[in-house]
Structure formats: structure tokens, C-alpha cells
Design a protein around this nucleic acid. Structure first.
Lengths: 205, 205
DNA sequence: GGAATTCTGTCATGCTATGACAACTGTCGT
DNA sequence: ACGACAGTTGTCATAGCATGACAGAATTCC
């Protein structure tokens, strides 16, 4: 099983404690106004130790968001082969969002990121860092080489970047539908095409 | 005409000099390795003055990129009404890229941004900050209200993805195809749909 | 030319982030 | 148990980014 030593367990606990403390402080005082010292102090470690667990202040805020991206990619890889890529990606994304959307901590995080340009940028950066990985998965489904054909990359960026933006925009528009539903709608729009109004009649097979 | 006073002209020159010096230093030493002090010193102003012209180190690096975004939006607004939005956006983007792509300074900048995740994220963030503006233009073309309908935002973010993908593909491919051509291709892929392979047959009118 | 406005440099300060080194704590073999 | 070893932490030092305050210099306007 999981025969983690005392040392390893302690590290896990410190890490979790730092994340929790950071999120709590961020929610109360905001991201910018919260200092590393405050986070470290509230867990009773030195601020130097903080940087041994997280490379930056953004890092601790986005720790959970990273897990979510990983979950989506795993779900995507697990989709049956032969499915259209956007359909597979949509199913994966909706699946993951649905498991997270009742989590209070996740929702707080979501608001935090949306409210903070620095965090938004950092999340984009992290998603972008995974594009190669995503493009590989997508390329495999499409049967093309991502290094030679830009389409997998395009699909990846559209899926990761646009949907995120679309959901945020939807939120702002005041729609109260659950996020998983918004995600599904955004993907559907991508699949059916975007060239309004009166794009040329297109038939795909 | 432009009866700019001495003061105003001096400011313009200082600003330009800072941008030029920054770009030169960035290209030689890289973005991270270049300090504000070095930039300020090479223009012979105090580092404090630097921050009176630019809010951050990213800011000076992306000053030209901002102009480019503005140019695309102007070109988009100038497109004949009734054109499909993606077609209009594609034409605007291709137009602007074509005018810039022979500019050495622009190419250096492009490489700089592509090579730096932090800069890439910052540029996306700046583009995102303009989404309200873009959505208004797109919404007008689509005949919908961006405040109520998320589709203009979705189109805006997807268009950004296309440009981004074109840049990446262009950098990755060396100099095989001109960037304006890759931009055109990326937009065409969006128009014809992305759901590979074998998406459901869709007919739009 | 002189008053008012605007810009600049200097000084001071706070926060993020990293390197170096010593002290401490858990791990493992005996 | 004991002690050598590896991994973790705290302290100290340092560099860079970014901002506020204020005095002095430059420009503008009359």
C-alpha cells in the first residue's frame, strides 16, 4: 500500500497546510495584499521554506488548478478512440468540471483567479506549458504528427483557452447555469462552427 | 498640425529610446537577465523614470505588440459590414501581419515573446483585456448583444488562438512559410470546423 | 522674466525570489 | 539503542521589481 515514511507524510501535511492557509488568506485579503510571510507565518514555517514547496506566490494559488488540468487530460486519454476530438475533449472537460463544481474550495479559487490578472496570466502560462502534451494526445486521435501539422495545436489551444474564456464570459453575462453545462455549450458552439453570420454552407464528413 | 511642444517631443523620444534599448538588451542577454537598471542606464535616465513610462518590464517588451493589436482592431472595424466575422477578422489579421512581417524589430520582438513563457502569457493577457472592445465589434457584426450572448467572446478568444497558433507554427517551422500565410490557414481551419475526424455532418446557412 | 506646471533624480521602503551554510530531524543498517 | 547518512528547515545575505515622497530642474504660459 502506501507505506509513506514520517518524513514524507510531514511534507505532504506542510504542503497542504500552506495551500489551505494561502487560499484562506487570499480570500480574505486578496491575492496581492497577502504576503508570503503571512502565509508562512500562519503555518509556522519560515518564508524560505515556502519557496521550497512552491516556486512563486502564483504557484500555491494554482496548485489545485494544475490538478484539474491533469484530470482533464487523463479523462481525455481515456475516451474511446475514434471519437471526434472535440467531442472527446468536451466529454472529458464536462466530466471533470462536474466532479469539482460543488467543491467550495474550488469555487473560491475560480473566483480568485478570475479577479486577478496576475493569476489569470499565470494560469494561461501553465496551460500553455502543457500544449505539447495535449497536442500529442490530439494528434494521435487525428492520426497526424503535431510537429508537422498545426491543427492539433490549434485544437488544443482552442479547447483550453477559448472554453475557459467562454465560461468566464458566460459567468459575467449573468447566466446561472452550472459550470459543467456552460462548458458543454461552449464546446457545442465550437463543433458547429463560428463563422457568423451566413458563413458559406459547409458539409463535413 | 502636430504642434507638439518640446516637452512632449522629449517624452516621445525618451519612450522610444527606452523601447529600443530594452529590445536591444533583451535580444542580447534575454528578457530575464536584463535588468531595469541596465535599460535605464543605457538611455541615461534613472530607473525611477523608467517606471514613469512603463508599469513593468513586460510593459516595455509588449509596447509594440499592443500597437499591433490596435491595428488589427482598426482593420477589423474597417471591414465591409455583412462579412462573416471570422472572415473579417482573418482579413484584418492577415493584413496587419503582412505589413509587419518584414520589419526586423518586429521579428526580434516576436522571437523574444515566443521564447519567454512569461511574456507569452502577458501578451495573451493584454489581448484578453481588450475582449470587451473586441466583443463589441463582433457583436455588432453578428447583431447580438455581447452582454447577453457569450458567442462574441467565444469568437474573440478563438480568433486569438488562431493568431497564437500561427505564430507558434511559424516559429517552429523555421521560415518555411510567411507568417501571414500561416495566419490565413489557421483562420480557415476555424471556419471549416475543428471536429476531426468525422464530426457529424453539419449544414450551416 | 517670472509664476505655474510638469518632469526627473534621489532616497526610502516593501515584497518576491534565490543562494549559501549551519542546525535539526527522520531513516536505515548494525 | 546507536550512529552515520540523507533530507529538511531556519537564518542570513543578496538581487531585482515596484512604488511613494519630496526637492530640484526643465518647460510652458503669460
Amino acid at each position: 500500500m502506501e507505506k509513506l515514511g514520517l518524513r514524507e507524510r510531514k511534507k505532504q501535511r506542510t504542503r497542504e497546510a500552506l495551500i489551505d492557509a494561502a487560499q484562506a488568506l487570499f480570500c480574505v485579503h486578496g491575492f496581492e495584499a497577502t504576503t508570503i510571510d503571512q502565509i508562512a507565518e500562519s503555518v509556522e514555517v519560515s518564508s524560505r521554506t515556502f519557496f521550497r514547496y512552491f516556486t512563486s506566490k502564483e504557484d500555491v494559488a494554482l496548485a489545485l488548478a494544475d490538478d484539474q488540468i491533469t484530470a482533464v487530460l487523463e479523462a481525455f486519454a481515456a475516451q474511446p478512440a475514434g471519437l471526434p476530438v472535440l467531442t472527446a475533449m468536451r466529454t472529458a472537460a464536462v466530466e471533470v468540471v462536474r466532479t469539482y463544481e460543488t467543491d467550495a474550495r474550488f469555487n473560491g479559487l475560480q473566483g480568485l483567479i478570475s479577479a486577478n490578472p496576475a493569476l489569470t496570466a499565470a494560469r494561461i502560462e501553465r496551460a500553455t506549458a502543457r500544449f505539447d502534451e495535449v497536442a500529442r494526445l490530439i494528434g494521435a486521435r487525428m492520426g497526424v504528427d503535431p510537429a508537422a501539422d498545426p491543427r492539433p495545436y490549434l485544437v488544443a489551444s482552442v479547447a483550453l483557452c477559448a472554453v475557459q474564456t467562454a465560461v468566464v464570459a458566460w459567468r459575467a453575462a449573468g447566466d446561472q447555469a452550472p459550470e459543467s453545462e456552460l462548458t458543454r455549450q461552449a464546446f457545442d458552439l465550437l463543433s458547429t462552427g463560428l463563422d457568423y453570420p451566413a458563413g458559406p454552407t459547409v458539409t463535413r464528413r
